[in-house]
Design a protein around this nucleic acid. Structure first.
Lengths: 220, 220
DNA sequence: ATTTTGTACAGGGTTTTTCCTGTTTTTGGC
DNA sequence: GCCAAAAACAGGAAAAACCCTGTACAAAAT
């Protein structure tokens, strides 16, 4: 057995240091190549001549998040294995990460020993998927039809005008005021509303707001 | 010098274990009394006969978050010092925590050594406030007038019924349906709406939703 | 060249929300 | 026991939101 070369990408320094300390505590056969604050930092610090075997990757990060980072890794260093370590346990995120080909996904409630297991398993078998993850995956397959509309597709679904409308709909102004501001007839606003109701499958202006917030289309 | 008795409240097990590992690594004069997943868990695990000197507290937690936990501690164990360790760096959260009397606030970017410094400082001087935290505090004082309504005060401002109403208002159901569901007259719902419009200084149902989302009163 | 799509608008309606001023009952503190 | 606040309710009215069908025109896709 040889050293497993590890890199960490997480914007939470304390967490990173804590992870390192845990890894070193459990097993001495790991070596930490480098740490990065986010995907951009990873691009700077990764060394093609000394690639890590496994990258521990967070999802929520400034500048360049986990999804973008894994996509970049897939294009540039497809042999580097990624183990996601994130407090995000939304099915959507898990499934999206698995689609990107990550080798494992550890949630917030894993034991430190499981981390070591995961690293070993990824080195030996090439992956480490817990029952929890497999469960999420299966469930998402079964409901793949009703999540037709996903975050990325939504922006394509909506026209520029509709996005503009949606932003203003998440506001206390009335539709008539909106029409004035945009130099449009109130009936045109009516039209945007109705097509968006249709596209986003909501039934009221409140539904629009909820949708926009849920999908991060507006920041409040 | 004697042992510093420490407890951790954080729902992220890996982070907890990592923190512990860091603490033990830096200095052996600390002893970990217990760990808790959230405020409720803390209430169960805290032992009046063997209180921790310092509690490392996260903010974002299920069941009972950091704010509620610190409030509970203040009432029941006012002598226990709290050091917040959170990735939340919003001024609002920091200021609110300081108002609750926490002895320190560590953000995501602190060095492990700073953690040890903070613990020592809290034991010796009773507090540990970084320039970053002081800066936030001063800034918030300068703008204290335009944050008249704050998260903590809002919950007191609203009655139970009004909170219940607000949650349902962040939904696509109509007020009439709401009345049916709650076995109330639509006119009663009318009343809740109007008093909340007043209290929260909003002008429409969309305003209610925005308010609720902004202040984390509803999760979407 | 034809169809689709985005944009903009309209008539004519119903439903829901919003606003006003009131009353009654219940409940928790002092 | 009294008072204040909360909870429940009501009539009446105006404004806003919602729904349906249909027109027109330009640009882009097929």
């Amino acid at each position: 057995m040889q050293f497993i070369k590890i890199a960490l990408v997480d914007d939470h320094k304390l967490f990173r240091k804590g992870l390192i300390s845990l890894i070193e505590m459990v097993n001495a056969s790991h070596i930490i190549l480098f740490e990065a604050d986010n995907g951009l930092d990873l691009q700077k610090k990764i060394d093609p001549k000394n690639l890590p075997d496994i990258i521990l990757m967070d999802i929520n990060m400034p500048s360049m998040n986990g999804f973008a980072s894994v996509e970049w890794l897939n294009k540039n260093y497809p042999l580097v294995k990624v183990l996601v370590v994130s407090m995000i346990e939304k099915e959507e995120s898990i499934v999206q990460m698995l689609k990107l080909g990550v080798k494992g996904y550890l949630g917030k409630d894993v034991e430190p020993t499981e981390l070591a297991d995961a690293l070993q398993s990824i080195m030996n078998k090439g992956f480490y998927y817990t029952d929890f993850i497999t469960g999420k995956l299966v469930h998402s397959l079964q409901h793949a039809d009703d999540e037709i509309v996903k975050k990325a597709d939504i922006l394509k679904l909506m026209t520029e005008r509709e996005k503009e409308f949606l932003e203003m709909a998440c506001t206390e102004i009335t539709y008539n005021e909106m029409a004035e501001k945009l130099f449009l007839s109130p009936k045109t606003i009516d039209g945007y509303r109705n097509t968006l109701f249709d596209k986003l499958k909501v039934k009221s202006r409140v539904g629009l707001v909820i949708f926009a917030v849920k999908h991060g289309l507006v920041e409040l």
